[in-house]
């Protein structure tokens, strides 16, 4: 294990302000290295149950890697990831597949199936995991697609869509099974400001309607202000600070302030 230089972590208080509810997702001293690139370096964080949490952090710090750990697509080199009471690295394959049926995941670039049209993409989880008839499926799929403004694009293939459209379709697909744990990797990147605002409203609405634990990764501070109930700020593979969003927006921590205000001067540079 490489030496940890403490001055790299001078802003990392690791302070975790209580959210008042138990954690649905916990990272416990997680380390993850790709070759010589240490991405997660002793990450410990908890994301509260039943709330919309946001993971914020500079590009390339390992936010997408975090999501892959939560769903068991990557395993930590050391440490543990606990989701809904299960330690992900020690689950058997079959149990992991069972657990994943409770997840709804939006990947950073949509990950639509290139060989299926939009409608079939969104209907796919319903056809695989439920006994619903085609009428009922059509009802759900059309509702989800029109929620994200793709009501007239049913027949389009993914390669005929813009990046933002693919993202919105992936968003619709991740919600069709009313999942208990929802993970969105930058649902708002590549969208215009109005659609971003509408998408934030939609996240809030769907969450109010179905409940569940939401984890949203974003770079957009406006989105964070609009929907986050809980915020974790990640940098250099560890939590700088985490807590209920109001408290974080008022934080004294220099890094957190710079990042949440989007200023160019402060601890974070281009590196």
């Amino acid at each position: 294990m490489a030496v940890v230089k403490e001055e790299e972590f001078e802003f990392h208080t690791g302070q975790n302000r209580p959210a008042g509810v138990p954690d649905a997702i916990q990272f416990i001293d997680v380390h993850k290295t790709f070759g010589s690139n240490q991405v997660l370096r002793g990450l410990s964080m908890g994301l509260p149950e039943g709330k919309v949490s946001m993971i914020l952090g500079p590009s390339g710090t390992g936010k997408s890697v975090c999501i892959k750990h939560i769903v068991g697509l990557m395993y930590p080199d050391s440490g543990d990831v606990v989701v809904a009471g299960h330690s992900i690295p020690s689950l058997s394959d079959d149990d992991l597949f069972e657990l994943r049926k409770k997840f709804g995941v939006l990947f950073q670039d949509g990950a639509l199936f290139g060989s299926l049209n939009l409608y079939d993409n969104v209907a796919f989880p319903l056809r695989q995991h439920t006994e619903k008839g085609e009428d009922e499926i059509a009802e759900i799929v059309n509702r989800r697609l029109s929620e994200v403004g793709l009501g007239n694009a049913n027949e389009k293939m993914p390669n005929e869509l813009s990046g933002g459209m693919r993202k919105r379709a992936g968003f619709a697909r991740s919600l069709v099974l009313d999942p208990e744990i929802v993970l969105f990797d930058e649902p708002d990147s590549g969208l215009d400001p109005v659609r971003t605002a509408l998408l934030c409203e939609l996240i809030k609405e769907v969450h109010a309607e179905n409940g569940g634990t939401y984890v949203v990764i974003t770079h957009d501070i406006m989105s964070a202000r609009r929907v986050a109930e809980y915020i974790a700020v990640l940098w250099r593979g560890r939590i700088v600070e985490a807590g209920p969003s109001q408290e974080l927006f008022e934080s004294e921590n220099e890094f957190v302030r710079q990042f949440l205000a989007g200023e160019s001067s402060g601890p974070l540079g281009m590196e």
Binding site: V71, L73, F97, F107, Q108, D109, G114, P125
Partner: peptide, 21 residues
């Protein structure tokens, strides 16, 4: 070509997280 394209565009990961082997 088909599976490779699915792999690099995260489609295989998407299948996995939908609980499909």
């Amino acid at each position: 070509a088909e599976l490779g394209a699915m792999r690099i565009s995260d489609e295989i990961d998407a299948l996995e997280v939908m609980g499909i082997d």
